[in-house]
């Protein structure tokens, strides 16, 4: 199962790869990273239908924001699950994201246990 993580901070890749080291080794999980909304859309458009099933995106990014990316993904690939990860845990961002069809809303600092739980649930189905 392929999961795409979108964040403009490059160290996020190292963090996620280490955090999900066991899961990527033993279970059928593959992590892909994009550092901007545009890059994320490129990765999703590489194959048809896209191999990615779940996107986790940051909201506050230069260029395309996570919320804009969410709208675009939902428009082009409605079957992909999208959850937001944001440092801005305010109700405004939350409501916008959920209204636009985000599955979950995670706040930074990321609680990796709940993130793992979310991915595990997805893998079961």
């Amino acid at each position: 199962m392929k999961i795409l993580i979108v964040d403009d901070e490059r160290d996020v890749e190292m963090l996620f790869r280490q955090k999900f080291r066991k899961e990527t080794r033993s279970e059928n999980l593959e992590l892909v990273f994009a550092f901007s909304g545009v890059e994320a859309l490129e990765i999703l458009g590489e194959s048809d239908p896209p191999s990615v099933v779940y996107v986790f995106s940051d909201i506050n990014m230069p260029g395309m924001t996570g919320l804009e990316l969410l709208d675009k993904i939902k428009e082009r690939f409605p079957q992909i699950n999208v959850s937001m990860i944001s440092a801005y845990g305010d109700s405004e961002n939350f409501n916008k994201a959920i209204k636009s069809g985000a599955k979950e809303f995670f706040t930074k600092p990321i609680d990796f246990e709940s993130l793992k739980e979310e991915i595990r649930n997805l893998m079961k189905t």
Partner: peptide, 12 residues
């Protein structure tokens, strides 16, 4: 906010 992001990395 600017401090929070690097701080998250330190903690993580």
């Amino acid at each position: 906010h600017e401090i929070k992001n690097p701080l998250n990395f330190v903690n993580n």
